[in-house]
């Protein structure tokens, strides 16, 4: 019996040896990892494997099925965006503070704060006589005489009639409107008026130079009605002539924003009044200097 048992035990020596060899090998690997140098070689691979296999940041199957992982990914994305924008916000605040300091140092007159009223278009007049719109904001809402109207696309027109609760805006597409414009790229100046085919025509063009096809047309600020730089349209060629597509038609919403005109008063409107005693003093000084130095011019 003992012989048979011994035979059976000897039947699988290879497997037994393999088990011991495997155990010894694994224990050897464990011991090798006590060396900091070897561990530093193994750790990067371990980290990558752990990230792929067991990272808690990786979504589980249930999260993928229910869409939680997608929502969490989107939240992480937005959080990263907020962090990035917060950084830009800090930069913007810092730059605004520096700009303010520089402007104070240089004594620059800044732009006046923008005041405007958004109004709903209550009716439109597109008849053969005049192209105008009526809006539900007037003097009571703070609309001023000569205000101009714009929408998301660009310049719409200017207020030609102002009531207490409403105002009539003459559209730039009207034949009677005249808008001083300039090419954004070419810098060419002209006067724009509306024509019958819903396109703008340019007149009073300079003798030399031309608008560039496709460039934007902006208000030039001449005349003091419209401030400089409001988008009016885009230059196109129709029938051999340069015409302007009005950009206000790209945003045909039911609202316009009425902005006060940027009229800069002329110097003669508000002349500097010199004090009387100072004038007299200056005159007496001139007399005295002339008497003491008769050869001076």
């Amino acid at each position: 019996m003992a012989r048979m048992r011994g035979k059976r035990l000897k039947g699988r020596p290879l497997r037994r040896y393999a088990l011991f060899v495997a155990l010894a090998g694994l224990f050897g690997i464990l011991l090798l990892q006590t060396s900091p140098r070897l561990r530093s070689m193994i750790d990067p691979a371990r980290t990558v494997a752990a990230d792929q296999l067991a990272s808690s940041a990786r979504p589980g199957l249930w999260d993928r099925i229910t869409g939680t992982s997608a929502r969490e990914a989107r939240i992480r994305e937005l959080e990263a965006e907020v962090r990035e924008l917060t950084r830009y916000r800090q930069v913007a605040i810092s730059m605004a503070a520096r700009l303010e300091a520089y402007e104070d140092m240089l004594n620059i007159m800044g732009e006046p704060p923008v005041r405007g009223v958004t109004a709903r278009i209550t009716s439109e007049t597109n008849g053969p006589f005049r192209e105008a719109i009526l809006v539900n904001a007037g003097a009571m809402q703070g609309v001023e005489e000569g205000a101009y109207a714009e929408n998301e696309g660009g310049l719409v027109g200017r207020v030609v009639q102002l009531g207490e609760r409403s105002a009539r805006v003459l559209l730039v597409t009207d034949f009677n409107s005249r808008v001083p414009v300039m090419g954004e790229a070419s810098g060419m100046r002209a006067i724009l008026y509306g024509d019958r085919d819903d396109l703008g025509s340019l007149t009073d063009l300079p003798e030399k130079g031309d608008f560039i096809l496709g460039e934007r047309v902006l208000t030039s600020g001449e005349g003091g009605i419209f401030p400089r730089g409001i988008v009016v349209g885009e230059v196109v060629r129709r029938g051999g002539d340069q015409r302007v597509i009005f950009s206000m038609n790209r945003a045909p919403g039911g609202f316009v924003r009425l902005m006060p005109s940027m009229k800069i008063p002329r110097p003669e409107d508000f002349p500097v009044e010199e004090p009387a005693d100072e004038t007299e003093t200056a005159a007496s000084d001139e007399t005295e200097s002339g008497a003491s130095n008769p050869g001076a011019p």
Partner: peptide, 26 residues
């Protein structure tokens, strides 16, 4: 009883356990 295939599988699964449990390899 002892066999090669279970031993190989157990070693491979053991490595995966090491990685997931941040245990030393082996």
């Amino acid at each position: 009883g002892l066999a090669f295939r279970p031993m190989i599988i157990l070693v491979i699964v053991g490595f995966a356990q090491d990685v997931s449990a941040y245990a030393p390899l082996g």
